[in-house]
Write a protein that binds this DNA or RNA. Sequence first.
DNA 1: TTTGTTGCAAAGGGTTTGCAGGAGA
DNA 2: TCTCCTGCAAACCCTTTGCAACAAA
Lengths: 129, 129
Amino acid sequence: MRQTPQREGILRALNAADRPLSVEEISSRMGEDRSGLPTIYRNLERFIKEGWAENILGQDQVMRFVRCNTNHHHHHVQCESCGRMVEVDFCGVEDSIRQLEISSGFRITRHQLSLFGLCTDCQSAEKRH
Amino acid sequence: MRQTPQREGILRALNAADRPLSVEEISSRMGEDRSGLPTIYRNLERFIKEGWAENILGQDQVMRFVRCNTNHHHHHVQCESCGRMVEVDFCGVEDSIRQLEISSGFRITRHQLSLFGLCTDCQSAEKRH
DNA sequence: TTTGTTGCAAAGGGTTTGCAGGAGA
DNA sequence: TCTCCTGCAAACCCTTTGCAACAAA
């Protein structure tokens, strides 16, 4: 894959972010290397294929993107107040999946867990009021 | 809420379905009571507010809708082959959430688990080939 | 020089809105 | 009759596509 200022800009934006970014947000954080939206979409598609990023479809139907830290199975917790998102390295679902396979008859091959709550900062901000 | 043929048609379509339906699909299953897409969107919004239906945003960015069977916390398993979706009445995530709250510092308030696999029918269909 | 990338504009496709006409109750 | 609801058309908005110009290597 060729190295271009646009690609560097996209990765820089994702690396600096602590939460999923929409394509618009990525564009506005690319500074000098800002590019058109189609370019960002096309490159993110490649990055996802390479395992460098993942996409998250929000309830507002907008696709957002995060840099991948690990390439093994993981989940995410997101703060509902500030939007910050953290990767969770362990998966506590596996045991209950066995149980579910027996009771439902389904053979489970894949799952996705999204966790939401309040990060430490927002919890203490909440207490102060 | 007023009773109209369109509303009955939408609920009938959802009741008869064993998988999430897009608005197009609902429309084509409403028979005599078929209505325009905006009407379906507007009514589904009401139904969701009333707790009669839930919406599921697929990876294809299309919103789909299912009739609610229970109004307490639950998850879904969907067959990746035939699309059939079943409600799962138990949640095995709660224990690992406690563990996660300690390790991450987040206070988890909400979570969403999506399970995918093969239903019994599709498993046996697979074996025959 | 070759071939992969970008930019621009336009198309696409699902969802939402505005408003006038219609039908529950 | 009085509202609420529906239909239609158009607007919206995010995302994708086509194609010519451009720039990595």
